[in-house]
Nucleic acid binder design. Structure first.
Length: 580
RNA sequence: GCUGGCGUAGCUCAGUCGGUAGAGCAGGUGACUUGUAAUCACCAGGUAACCGGUUCGAAUCCGGUCGCCAGCUCCA
């Protein structure tokens, strides 16, 4: 089914749902009801609360409407005619939409039986053409997405050309739920959340093992690319935040505290602290581009309703970097950052797309600065021939940005990396360097992050790998499973040999059957399981099992060690074992 | 923050009409001595999120607070 067809198909489903709701409830006012990526929704304003249990009732009514096979008829009206019609029906929201149509624009409505809707179309010929649909959830949604407006009740549903495809989609939803990082995080004992600190994640030992691998990798990458690492304080005097512009532009998201008689703020961003280091001595153009990283912990007050496991938190580590440079170095530096980002995302097998965000309403700086910065970012992308989307008005308050968006297994898009050009901070903090001419000049500042937030990145990785991390990231990389009590000692010796090489190995010494220990290891998604019994002690081989590939036969222990080390060192996504 | 739903043992979840809390897994102890996804037995585990109300009596009904979930708005 072509996309346009699927869209009108789902849009028709939305109309049928609206008709059903109007039949079942009195005094219903319609909001909007479009087709969306995986289905459709419709917003309603009505006195009664629609509960999840009511969905079945609405579905039943929709079934009736489909059975009635009502033709959908398009009518073109004048604005006055449409207004009269909508006023009669008391459709206040639709009237608002009508008044916003361009004077010359055609006004069309679609009718099906006793129902009509102001709508551009197109639609299916009749309601009987709908074959498979399901209502999924109810939620509140502000009229026109503005929190100052009234909240309407939105019903989400999905529709497919046939039962089979619908079933497939619903199964997919189930599968996605199994990968939820909050569930897996608990099962694998990676992290936890507590009422005592909503939005402030607690990382457990296994979570920290992954974290440490991520940061080790991150440091390796940066060291060879000429970055220098710094650390700056979490709490800084409020005055600094006035100077940086955060007070005027970011105050609602900040936490404040007092020390003695003075006001302090907990940092929501790392840059002002880094700027203080820059200012601690004079700089020459010869140092540029000067790349400075900080894996900095920030705190941001996010609305309670948006918190979501590790993917949306109130405290997180940004893998920040600030690059101080000459204007003519912008393109090269931006391209360098993009190349680094590509390397990182490829290592994890993540797909991404690029967005260029421009000046937001709440922002600082001159028109010219913004214009120049936006052009610089855009031209860097074009120079590499990279496709990107423009996101009007979505930039940071101090400058435009290029964002890396990756898609998770639930089809949700997450912003990870970001490259932000900033002409404001250097001015506000009077940053200078001495140029070739011996005069002081203003450097250009570029902020960037590639993991984005480490917490969020970890959450995405959990879902991406469904907890089965590539060996280099796995909290436990190899577990020895002695068959009997007598094999424990030998297993320990082998395990220690691996541990000496930095491999995270351990022995399951419990008095349990092999099947039991295997099951445990499988559930923990440990990449390699090594059974050790009489045969292995005698032969010097290990009996190997891989969490995905199953039993893999026997292998010389020394050979296994080498292969494992290679797999870890090269940060491979796949096991060295051949597929059976 | 807003709308709706939810909150019972470490985890997953039962619990009829308001009558005083239960299972499996995990944990502890003991037995068994194990060859590739669950050995058996016993034991322990609870201020029912928290605070208040209604009632002879509340996990159950009502109100408030907190947290979680699905969205909205916002965002790394």
């Amino acid at each position: 089914m072509a996309n346009e067809h699927l869209e009108s198909y789902r849009h028709t489903a939305a109309h049928v749902m609206a008709q059903a709701v109007k039949r079942l409830y009195s005094n219903v006012k319609l909001g909007i009801g479009p087709a969306i990526e995986d289905g459709f929704y419709y917003d309603f304003d009505l006195e009664e609360r629609i509960n999840p249990e009511d969905l079945a009732r609405i579905e039943k009514e929709m079934g009736k409407i489909i059975k009635e096979d009502l033709p959908l008829e398009r009518e073109v009206l004048t604005k006055d005619q449409a207004r009269e019609l909508l006023e009669k029906e008391n459709e206040a929201f639709k009237l608002e939409l009508l008044e916003e149509l361009e004077p010359g624009e055609e006004v069309s409505i679609y009718r099906q039986g006793d129902f009509f809707d102001l709508c551009r179309g197109p639609h299916l010929e009749s309601t009987g053409k709908l074959k498979a649909f399901k209502l999924l959830s109810v939620a509140g949604a502000y009229w026109r997405g503005d929190e100052k407006n009234k909240m309407l009740q939105r019903i989400y549903g999905t529709a497919f050309p046939n039962r089979k495809e619908l079933k497939k989609y619903l199964l997919q939803l189930e599968e996605a739920k199994k990968r939820d990082h909050r569930k897996i995080g608990k099962e694998l004992d990676l992290f936890s959340m507590h009422e005592e600190g909503p939005g402030f994640p607690f990382l457990h030992p296994s979570g920290v093992a992954i974290w440490n691998e991520l940061t080790r990798y991150w440091r390796e990458l940066h060291r060879v690319r000429g970055y220098q690492e710094i650390r700056t304080p979490l709490v800084l005097n409020e005055e600094l935040w006035h100077q940086s512009g955060h007070w005027d532009n970011y105050r609602e998201n900040m936490y404040f505290t007092r020390i003695d008689e003075d006001n302090y703020a907990i940092r929501p961003m790392n840059c002002p602290g880094g700027v203080l280091i820059y200012k601690s001595r004079p700089h020459s153009y010869r140092e540029f581009p000067m790349r400075v990283t900080e894996l900095g912990l920030v705190h941001r007050h996010e609305l309670s309703g948006v918190l979501h496991g590790l993917l949306r938190v109130r405290s997180f580590h940004i893998d920040d970097a600030h690059i101080y440079m000459l204007p003519e170095q912008i393109t090269d530096e931006v391209l360098g950052v993009i190349r680094l980002a590509e390397e990182i995302y490829n290592t994890f097998g993540l797909k991404y797309r690029l967005e260029l965000s421009t000046r937001p309403e709440k922002s600082m700086g001159s028109e010219e600065d913004w214009d120049q910065a936006e052009k610089a970012l855009g031209s860097a992308l074009e120079k590499r021939g990279l496709p990107y989307q423009i996101n009007e008005g979505d930039g940071a308050f101090y400058g435009p940005k290029i964002d890396f968006h990756i898609e998770d297994c639930l089809g949700r898009s997450w912003q990870l990396g970001t490259i932000q050009l900033d002409f404001q901070l250097p001015q506000r903090f009077d940053l200078t360097y001495v140029g070739r001419d011996g005069q002081e000049h203003r450097p250009v500042l570029l902020h960037r992050a590639l993991f984005g937030a480490l917490e969020r990145f970890l959450g995405i990785l959990i879902e991406h790998f469904a907890g089965a991390f590539p060996t280099w990231l796995a909290p436990i990389q190899a577990r020895f499973i002695p068959i009997g009590e007598g094999h424990v000692k030998y297993a320990r010796r082998l395990s220690e040999e691996l541990e000496k090489e930095g491999i995270r190995a351990e022995v399951d010494e419990r008095d349990e059957k092999v099947g039991y220990k295997i099951r445990q290891a499988q559930k923990e998604k440990i990449p390699y399981m090594l059974a050790i019994g009489d045969r292995e002690v005698e032969s010097g081989k290990v009996s190997l099992r891989h969490r995905q590939k199953g039993e893999a036969g026997q292998l010389e222990f020394s050979r296994f060690k080498e292969e494992l080390l290679k797999e870890i060192r090269e940060r491979k996504l796949e096991s060295f074992l051949e597929d059976k």
